[in-house]
Design a protein around this nucleic acid. Structure first.
Lengths: 199, 199
DNA sequence: GCTGAATGAGAACAAAAGGAGAACATTACA
DNA sequence: TGTAATGTTCTCCTTTTGTTCTCATTCAGC
């Protein structure tokens, strides 16, 4: 059981690691807790290590790792159920919370803000964010970030044709599908998610 | 686990490759990170290769390849920029990463899975998730979870009328707006976000 | 009073992190 | 083919970081 101050150090470690994905430096911990000396901070870290809450890689910058016992609060929201017009909210059995990090966070992903209405019929509106996984191949029908002639980047549905050519389809009936020779189109990533904020 | 500077090199590699389709030159990395020596940059690349995050084709210009293992940060994804049909990805100045936990997670929020097409014209499709903030009041035009007569829960746009009554509008032209006396409608929450997974 | 735990400051040191630049080999390209 | 650009390998340097000390202060409990 850590002391009061030790617990504050641990709380900050959790918050920092959740936010940045790596441990803070001793100086950052000290500044946040208004401690003037790195030596003092280090004493707390050693105490936390002695209790099995963290592991310290000696002499390494940011060499602190949280152990299972001290795992950060998960990135979850309660999932209340399904909502449909005209009926009460239905509870979803067996799924009472949803881990957003499973949906979104994975290696090699990044976010793009969408400009324009080219995917509006797939529910991707101007200003929405899409989560893209960096990949060079994609399945037929996937929404991809494609680079045409090494210059123009677009968000389109991918269709591979039998003759080897590639058709890129917008989800907007005012925009005709475009067909390209295979070597003109390079897939940069596949859209694996989308989100939007109303604030 | 890369050092601070090594991680910045990796972030730049990811952003550059996603944007240009090929790796940068050492001098480009150096200029972006304000490093004066190519030798220093090369040391970072070798460290990243030793950790299995990238592969280097020896002596080749732009001979860096990202490996799948390249680690992402939990809850934080890089924001590469804006994408629009017919133009390269534009960088967004001053916003190079998005903290999804700040975006979505708050103690008074929950997630609902949407069933049906009542909000399809607002880009909320069947099966999408909406993030709802628990509140009893809402601004005009907000998308709300409303309870009608204490029984039916629906997802609709809210419109407060001058006579005190309330109109709930679906975003679907086949569904007519419905008008209710104020005491029949109770706002349960306001939609603050929406997301979708393509897996 | 006395004691011990908790907390803090700061000095001193070794190692890591970060950088500059020279020198050379190889590649890219007009 | 020849020249500039690029990648690669060094060594030397400064700053930052982690680490280990000692000393001081406060406070609770006996």
């Amino acid at each position: 059981m850590p002391t009061d101050r030790g617990r504050e150090v641990l709380d900050f470690l959790r918050a920092y690691i959740a936010r940045h994905g790596r441990a803070p430096k001793l100086r950052e911990i000290a500044r946040h807790l208004e401690i003037g000396s790195r030596g003092t901070v280090h004493r707390y870290l050693r105490a936390l290590e002695a209790e099995g809450l963290i592991a310290i890689e000696p002499a390494r910058a940011r060499g602190v790792r949280l152990r299972r016992k001290a795992a950060a609060r998960p990135f979850v929201l309660p999932l209340l159920g399904r909502i449909a017009a005209g009926r009460p909210i239905e509870a979803v059995p067996g799924a009472d919370e949803i881990d957003l990090s499973e949906f979104f966070v994975a290696p090699n992903r990044f976010v793009l803000r969408v400009a324009g209405d080219s995917m509006v019929e797939d529910g991707i509106l101007d200003g929405d964010m899409v989560i893209v996984e960096w990949r060079e191949t994609a399945d037929n029908g996937a929404i991809v970030v494609a680079l045409i002639d090494g210059q123009e980047a677009t968000l389109k549905r991918l269709q591979k044709n039998h003759d080897g050519s590639v058709t890129l389809r917008a989800a907007n009936s005012t925009m005709p599908p475009m067909r390209y020779a295979a070597d003109r189109v390079r897939v940069q990533g596949v859209v694996v998610g989308q989100f939007r904020s109303y604030r």
